[in-house]
Nucleic acid binder design. Structure first.
Length: 503
RNA sequence: GGCCCCAUCGUCUAGAGGCCUAGGACACCACCCUCUCAAGGUGGAGACACGGGUUCGAACCCCGUUGGGGCUGCCA
């Protein structure tokens, strides 16, 4: 078996889609598993929709996910001569014809007649090539089979395929053509891509064979025999593998417009690349043994296209989040501190790849108030409480802000609606003035304060927590108090007491 | 409309004719743990779309129905 060569071929028309991530991952897994080559090819033939920044986005997202290409990025925009040459070849051999039908004209005729798709109106008009769109003359008879590793053999009757356009009237090649020329040139052995491309596979095969036949001696469409491209200089067809699409909760294909699909967004939200990669691997495939949280090496060792599922998979952010939480908890504290830096440290927040979580903004505290040593003490406490890194600032902000952000509902629940809250705050204030300043001692003191007020600790700590942190929920209270320091805790208790008494 | 794909708990899946009284995970519910919230632990509820075949035997094979989806652009 020759060295497998696979390619991931996105077009740079927007943020990096999680579905693209899954496709890239499966290509990468296949290449790694089989000692193959993973190629990145940017399909930027649509100059109106492509933007250079999105190319950078693709490269960065792949690097972030740990899916760096072995070759590339190649760019279709730099290979125009290859496509022109292929178009010349096909035109000279009679596979193509020029068409000047407008979209409206095609649509009108389709509505009036029974022919689905393009009706071949220009087939025999002998229009000049220059200035016209070029259509491929599809065979009127026979069938084209797509050999798919996941779905088996899919058969398309040739007479159900319309004469599709391969080049625009301005001479630019279209996806179907450029894609095939590249796959041939780059000796691609396995085309692993989304299921939505399955209907274009028979067209690809038609072009592929036409190119073979023309190269062999310009047999022309009439002389193009059926069967596989065989020996005699023909380029062997690749094997296809069409992955199930990713869908939203309405079971529709994930859309950039409606659904949260940008990998960059998940990165900014604090999903770890290894977690996202692991989750994506599970969408359409599962490693043996039933384990779900699996190191990438195990993924590689077990991956097989034959085992990929056939049906669409729902991208479940809840499950992703759970898995992300597991990955976060697996980190050592030092690793956790390092990786959460982009979300908490206003000064050194640029991450290893050079990015910052722009979409979630900088930490809410001023740079000079962030204290790495203080954060380190809180880190193990927050590490086990978050599912994403972007949640971390909300758990520690009370330490780094001058005053806690007072959540109105929390205040009402723990202080405003609690007649005994003021007295308890007062008692805590006096106890905390004296107590040895450690989490254990603070806890004991608070238990005592609670007992004197006839409260269990759970009820006693609530007003204190809100007074000091601004919320009813957060990291363990007594460690938080210890870190904040006596002076600051007393100041906040006093402020809350004042507010509670004045209403 | 045409072509094509798909069909196991709400979701992701295990299951390749007897190991299935259908397993796991997320979500959900209850309980335990507990200073809040999480995490963790224990338990619970929850599925083979339907109808025909084939077979001694079908979630697994075949056919049909129904349902869902994709494509149907001078986008990719």
């Amino acid at each position: 078996m020759p060295v497998p060569r696979v390619r991931f071929a996105p077009s740079p028309t927007g943020y990096f889609h999680v579905g693209s991530g899954r496709t890239a991952l499966y290509n990468w897994l296949f290449a790694r598993r089989n000692g193959g080559v993973f190629i990145l090819r940017i399909e930027d033939t649509d100059t109106e929709r492509n933007r250079e920044e999105w190319v950078d986005g693709i490269v960065e997202a792949l690097a972030w996910l740990g899916l760096e290409p072995d070759e590339g990025p190649y760019r279709q925009s730099e290979r125009a001569a290859r496509y022109q040459s292929a178009i010349d070849t096909l035109w000279d051999a009679g596979y193509l014809y020029a068409c000047d039908c407008t979209q409206e004209a095609v649509r009108t005729r389709r509505m009036m007649g029974a022919t689905p798709g393009y009706d071949g109106f220009c087939r025999d008009r002998g229009l000049p090539r220059e200035g016209n769109a070029l259509r491929f003359r599809t065979p009127a008879e026979g069938e084209t089979q797509v050999h798919d590793l996941i779905r088996g053999t899919v058969t398309f009757r040739n007479n159900t395929m319309e004469d599709f356009v391969v080049a625009r009237s301005n001479g630019q090649p279209l996806f179907v053509l450029a894609n095939i020329v590249d796959d041939r040139d780059m000796k691609i052995t396995h085309v692993i891509r989304g299921e939505e491309l399955l209907p274009s596979a028979p067209k690809a095969i038609l072009i592929w064979r036409a190119l073979d036949a023309a190269a062999k001696g310009g047999a022309g469409p009439g002389g193009a025999g059926p069967g596989e491209a065989g020996p005699g200089g023909a380029t062997p067809l690749p094997v296809w593998a069409h992955l199930p699409i990713l869908v939203n909760e309405d079971r529709e294909k994930l859309s950039k417009r409606r659904d949260p699909v940008a990998v960059e967004m998940y990165r900014d939200q604090g999903y770890l690349p290894e977690a996202l990669r692991n989750y994506l691997a599970l969408l359409g495939w599962s490693p043996p043994g039933g384990a779900e949280k699996v190191p990438v090496g195990v993924l590689v060792d077990n991956f097989a296209l034959e085992d990929v599922n056939h049906s669409p998979a729902f991208f479940d952010v809840k499950k992703l989040s759970h898995m992300n939480g597991e990955y976060i908890r697996d980190l050592s504290v030092d690793e956790f501190v390092d990786r959460v830096r982009p979300w908490v440290d206003p000064v050194t927040r640029r991450a290893a790849g050079g990015w910052v979580p722009e979409s979630v903004g900088p930490p809410p505290w001023p740079p000079e108030r962030f204290d790495a040593a203080v954060f380190l003490r809180l880190a193990p406490l927050v590490q086990e409480r978050v599912a994403t890194l972007a949640e971390v600032p909300g758990l520690v902000d009370f330490v780094f802000l001058r005053d806690p952000v007072m959540d109105a509902a929390s205040w009402e629940k723990a202080i405003g609606s609690d007649p005994g809250a003021a007295a308890l705050l007062d008692a805590a204030f006096r106890a905390y003035e004296e107590v040895r300043w450690s989490a254990d001692a603070l806890r004991e003191a608070t238990v005592t304060v609670g007992e004197q007020a006839g409260r269990k600790l759970a009820k006693a700590q609530a007003p204190i927590r809100v007074a000091v942190t601004g919320r009813t929920v957060g990291p363990p209270l007594f460690e938080s108090l210890e870190v904040l320091g006596r002076e600051e805790v007393l100041r906040r208790l006093m402020a809350a007491l004042r507010r509670a008494r004045t209403g």
